[in-house]
Design a binder for these strands. Structure first.
Lengths: 103, 103
DNA sequence: CACTACCGTAAGCACACACTTACCGTAAGG
DNA sequence: CCTTACGGTAAGTGTGTGCTTACGGTAGTG
């Protein structure tokens, strides 16, 4: 579960549709597929990618599987953004300091 | 410049390497390609995608082109995360309220 | 025990895309 | 000018991947 997996998971439009649909409420695979222009196995494969990226989790309810949003995936994304900005600012400050001390 | 473009732009490892390399300081195309296992045209194509996604900008310096980090791309990403969470929380609260009022 | 509902997996296909080499345009420097 | 440095673009290639249909496997139901 790396941020690379999160990026490539959310890069696909269909996968984003699935993910954003789960934002409203937990749904089953067939339920998700019914609102999309692709087949049920396709949705199943997308869910596998999303699960691997830590974006969703599954829960067995009888013969169905209820998929819900998982926090860790987006958490990894947010951490990536935060460290990216702080590193960029640090590098920027260092570059300025170097330029003013040795002109 | 949508968050979809940002996601697919950062989904590629080589493109992330380019992007994260620019976090340290602005660099030219040949400079970036020198630190990567791919050819210069490949880097040039990656930079086009990153530019289209609002993640980098170019500045002409003589015959060279200095690429730097652009804020708008990651800004769009952060907005996406924020609205996603707030929408998810709203939907969750509504679901709870509905369940407690009509059991 | 059937029978149905639900879903994951396998196999195959068509397209996208990340690369390459080759080429051309533009700016600096003799 | 001519030459060199730098980089964007074109065309072609191979792998990855998003999709399909077909199948098998498990949990409820009569």
């Amino acid at each position: 579960m790396t941020y690379g997996e999160v990026f490539s998971a959310l890069a696909d439009p269909t996968r984003r549709s699935v993910f954003e649909s789960l934002r409203e409420e937990p749904r089953s695979v067939g339920d998700l597929a019914a609102g999309l222009p692709v087949s049920r196995p396709a949705v199943s494969q997308h869910l596998r990618v999303l699960e691997q990226a830590g974006l969703v989790t599954a829960e067995r309810v009888g013969t169905r599987r209820l998929y819900s949003i998982e926090r860790s995936g987006l958490h990894a994304l947010r951490d990536y953004l935060d460290t990216f900005w702080s590193d960029a600012l640090t590098a920027y400050a260092a570059r300025i300091a170097e330029r003013t001390s040795t002109p």
